[in-house]
Design a protein around this nucleic acid. Structure first.
Lengths: 143, 143
DNA sequence: ATAAACCTGTGTCATGAACACAGGTCAAGT
DNA sequence: ACTTGACCTGTGTTCATGACACAGGTTTAT
């Protein structure tokens, strides 16, 4: 099985398979006649596992730790339980960041609907952006 | 004004100032005796503008377009209105992604509370992850 | 045999800074 | 004048997760 075959079968791009090979999580054998990498059952199982873990928010490095724990025959479960808590915190953060950014953006768009375009001056590059920032700052400090 | 001075005054790190200098948005003069970059009023205004735009979700490249439009004396406002719509779409996407990931994560954590740790086998690396993925897939296809 | 179509591995790029590091500068102390 | 130490500087590299570019190899059709 070559890179595109396994990629299609699992539903990812060949580049993704190559990436996990490059970082050493997949270890295909090498066809000596043409240098092509040969993926087998083990790689298929590993790749599926990697994708499942990614779906749950584990980082590629997390997965590396999980895999090497399992390779040594130890249960990766305790590590998994710890790691997901950490990643959850990060996800909460990125969620909050997205919410706040979205609010700023929609608020800006709405405000800008009432405002004309203007040419830049020595003082201003874009009055939409600069004035909105002042307004937002004023709101923020409660002014 | 040297890099740390302007950075402190505006409230960012020196690395951030260096970054915007490197990409060419800030053009400090160079002190010929020591090679240090000398930031002035113009750079201060530019840096403030850049940060305001970043707050609104514009990418660094967006800001480059906005600045070069303004430099040619044309109003960047039409561009700004277009760009923010695009970035808003991306922000919505990242918002939704965060929400969904968070759901998967909290659901996994909850499910895992009922499950023991287990050592890996030839078939399984981590039953928590692999079994949750099956469950989630089953839910997804309505099974 | 040859041509086109497709596939491969390796190397580079992307975001937006943060970090590492070797060397320069400057004030305090002697 | 000199030295020590603290601080500062610019430049180069690193981060995460693949996507993309590219030169060359392979397979299929003629």
């Amino acid at each position: 099985m070559r890179v595109n075959q396994i990629a299609n079968e699992i539903g990812v791009t060949a580049d993704t398979v190559r990436f996990y090979t490059r970082v050493g999580y997949l270890n295909p054998s090498k066809n000596p006649t043409n240098g092509y990498k040969e993926y087998g059952d083990k790689e298929r199982r590993l790749l599926r596992f990697i994708l499942s873990a990614r779906q749950l928010g584990f980082s590629v490095e997390d997965i590396g730790q999980i895999l090497s724990t399992a390779e040594r025959g130890r249960s990766p479960c305790p590590l998994v339980r710890v790691l997901i808590q950490q990643r959850l915190i990060e996800t909460q953060k990125s969620f909050q960041d997205s919410v706040q950014l979205r609010e700023r953006m929609t608020s800006a768009i709405e405000t800008w609907n009432q405002k004309p375009d203007r040419a830049p001056t020595g003082e201003m590059i874009c009055h939409l952006i600069e004035e909105f920032d002042h307004t937002a700052a004023a709101v923020y400090i409660g002014a």
